[in-house]
C-alpha cells in the first residue's frame, strides 16, 4: 500500500509543475519519442532530478529519524540530535561566505555535518561515557549550539545584498536548484548509510529494549549503536548537503509510519522510508506549484508537520508506548 502511495506521489511529482506540459507530452518525452526539445530539457534536467532528489532526501531524513529514535529509545528525537544538521548548515553557509562553487558548498556541508558528529562521538569517548545515551545527547546539544553560533557569525560577516539572502534560503531548505549531478553525488552516500540499517534492522530493533535484555539476546549494544549512529549520520549529512535544512520529516514521518506498522523496527524502517519519500515528493510538488515562486521546504514541512505531530500526540499514538 505504501509502495503504491509512493508511486502515485512520484507520478504526481513528475506531472505537476510550473512549466505547462500536457500529460501526453510528458509521457512521450519520457518514452523517448521525441516531443518538444524544451519539454525534454525541463523534464530530464529539472523536474525528474528534483522529484528523485525529493524522494531520496525524504527517505533519508525519515529513515535516519526512525533509526535515531530507536537507538535513543526516545520518540522526540530527530536526525539533528547529534548536531549533524547544524554542522552541515554551518559548513554550507561558510562555503557561501567564501564564495565557493555550489558543489564545494555541498561538499563542505556534508563534511562539516560528519565532522560535528565525529567530534561528539570523540568527546563522549574522552569523557569515558562512550555509548551512554545521555552523554551523547548532551555533547550533541553543546556542539550543535556551537555550530549554530558559527552560522550566526557567518550571517553577520556575509554581504547583506548578496550572500545573506543565499544563506537564509539555504537554511530554510529547498530543492529548487537540484541538478542531476547533485543526485548522482548524494545517492551513493545515502545508499551506503541506508543499506546497513536495512540489513541489520532486526538486530537494531533490539536496541529499543532495555540494555540488559538486549545484551541477553546476544546484541553487542555499544558497537551496534555506534554503527547505527554512523549510518544515520551519513544519510542525514548527504541529504542535508543537497537540500538545505528541512526539519520535521525525520521527527514526524516515523510516527506516522508507526501508526501503520507498530513499533517493531524491522517493519517500521521500510515503511518509514517509503512514507518519507512519498511525503517529501508531495510537499516539494506543492512547494513549486502553490505559488509562482518557491515556498521554502522547511516552512512547508513545519506548517504541515507541527499540526500532524500534535494530532498524533493527542491521539496518544499507541505506536510507541508498549
Amino acid at each position: 500500500m505504501l509502495a503504491a502511495g509512493l508511486a502515485l506521489a512520484l507520478l504526481a511529482g513528475v506531472m505537476i509543475g510550473p512549466f505547462p506540459m500536457a500529460p501526453g507530452q510528458i509521457l512521450r518525452v519520457l518514452a523517448g519519442q521525441g516531443g518538444e526539445a524544451q519539454a525534454a530539457t525541463v523534464l530530464w534536467n529539472i523536474r525528474l532530478p528534483r522529484v528523485l532528489a525529493a524522494a531520496l532526501v525524504g527517505a533519508a531524513l525519515a529513515g535516519a529519524g526512525a533509526a535515531y529514535q530507536t537507538v535513543f529509545r526516545n520518540p522526540l528525537v530527530s536526525p539533528d540530535i547529534l548536531g549533524v544538521s547544524a554542522g552541515a548548515g554551518f559548513g554550507a553557509v561558510l562555503g557561501i561566505l567564501l564564495g565557493l562553487p555550489v558543489l564545494a558548498i555541498q561538499a563542505l556541508g556534508f563534511g562539516m555535518g560528519l565532522a560535528v558528529v565525529a567530534l561528539v562521538l570523540g568527546l563522549t569517548l574522552a569523557l569515558r561515557a562512550g555509548g551512554q545515551v545521555l552523554a551523547l545527547v548532551l555533547c550533541g546539544i553543546a556542539i550543535g549550539a556551537l555550530a549554530g553560533a558559527g552560522v550566526s557569525l557567518v550571517k553577520l560577516l556575509a554581504d547583506p545584498d548578496d550572500q545573506l539572502p543565499a544563506i537564509t534560503f539555504w537554511l530554510m531548505g529547498s530543492l529548487a536548484g537540484i541538478k542531476r549531478i547533485d543526485v548522482a553525488l548524494a545517492l551513493p552516500a545515502i545508499l551506503a548509510g541506508l543499506l546497513p540499517l536495512l540489513l541489520l534492522r532486526w538486530r537494531i530493533g533490539h536496541l529499543a529494549l532495555p540494555e540488559d535484555e538486549a545484551r541477553s539476546l546476544g546484541v553487542d549494544t555499544g558497537r551496534l549503536r555506534l554503527l547505527v549512529i554512523l549510518a544515520a549520520t551519513l544519510v542525514t549529512a548527504a541529504a542535508v548537503s543537497i537540500s538545505g535544512v528541512i526539519g520535521w520529516v525525520g521527527l514526524m514521518v516515523p510516527h506516522m509510519a508507526r501508526l501503520v506498522t507498530g513499533p517493531r523496527f524491522d517493519r517500521l524502517l521500510p515503511a518509514t522510508l517509503l512514507l518519507g519519500a512519498g511525503f517529501l515528493v508531495l510537499v516539494d510538488t506543492a512547494a513549486r506549484s502553490v505559488a509562482l515562486t518557491e515556498v521554502p521546504l522547511g516552512i512547508l514541512t513545519a506548517v504541515i508537520g507541527a499540526p500532524v505531530f500534535l494530532a498524533l500526540l493527542l491521539r496518544r499514538a499507541r505506536g510507541w508506548a508498549e
Binding site: G17, F19, Q38, V42, I46, R50, G177, R288, L292, E294
Partner: peptide, 10 residues
C-alpha cells in the same frame, strides 16, 4: 525570492 529553473522555463 527563490524560484526553480523550471519556473524560469515557464
Amino acid at each position: 525570492l527563490t524560484v526553480s529553473a523550471e519556473q524560469v522555463q515557464a
